[in-house]
Design a protein around this nucleic acid. Sequence first.
DNA 1: TCCCTAATTAGAATAATTCTAATCTATTGA
DNA 2: TCAATAGATTAGAATTATTCTAATTAGGGA
Lengths: 139, 139
Amino acid sequence: MTGRPSNAASERLRQAGLRPTRQRLALAGLLFDGGDRHVTAETLHREAIGTHVRVSLATVYNALHQFTKAGLLREVVVDAGRAYFDTNTRHHHHFFVEHDGALSDIAAGGVEVSRLPAPPAGTEVERVDVVVRIRRRQG
Amino acid sequence: MTGRPSNAASERLRQAGLRPTRQRLALAGLLFDGGDRHVTAETLHREAIGTHVRVSLATVYNALHQFTKAGLLREVVVDAGRAYFDTNTRHHHHFFVEHDGALSDIAAGGVEVSRLPAPPAGTEVERVDVVVRIRRRQG
DNA sequence: TCCCTAATTAGAATAATTCTAATCTATTGA
DNA sequence: TCAATAGATTAGAATTATTCTAATTAGGGA
Ligand SMILES: [Mn+2]
Ligand SMILES: [Mn+2]
Ligand SMILES: [Zn+2]
Ligand SMILES: [Zn+2]
């Protein structure tokens, strides 16, 4: 018996057409085992290294894009120059603290964006993103 | 008489504490003489070169940031990896076509973002940005 | 016109990301 | 069980957007 690890994480990856490799399983563990979170390639890579998961930065980039394509993550654009990835793939919005790059969720439930004009002819709306840029109160 | 050019553009720059140099005047002309527009450093630089304005890319970056600090421009974040600058400094929102990077304005007038939760304790809202991501209709 | 300082610039440096091509590994079917 | 193979990982180079450095140029007050 080859003890093939056929747990939930493995299945989720297989479902996405991705082989459950050591690196992908470890990254998926970091991303999906706790609550929802926001990462960049750098923060996730540092976290992996800090947890003694040997994985290259290139593989972290690959995995983030593959997970995104598979619908396990979504990208959040709040900063020109750095891509954030979000394990919360439900429709929702964000608070963003420019000073330190901290992101936090705003459930889509309550928020209402009303009276938006129709999109230009020949186009359709893919997503409406609300980013509330906040800063520490002057102190 | 030294024919010192003391026109509107010069005055606007002086007001901002910026010397009205040949480069800044030319860039201000491209940016502010027509209607509102959205540029990146690259597009503005290419446009300057195409109009026979000799200016370096570094100076374009400098000018965009200086104009922004002076309140003549504002930055729009819609794409991780590329900074857009907007000559419309009034409060407003955007349609963004990811495919080709095209940005268009949505007047803030009609749009209403309601029932946003209060920002985290100790922080204050700086700005609320709505980005409507659109794509060409499938065809 | 002289002088000082601000501004411009080419090119190097940096930062985020992607690419390349060599190596490794998960999976499969003999 | 084990080779074969296609997919995955990786180091390092390459690319892209942006900033920095240090040398040169030019605006503007006196
Ligand atoms: Mn991307
Ligand atoms: Mn960058
Ligand atoms: Zn989120
Ligand atoms: Zn705009």
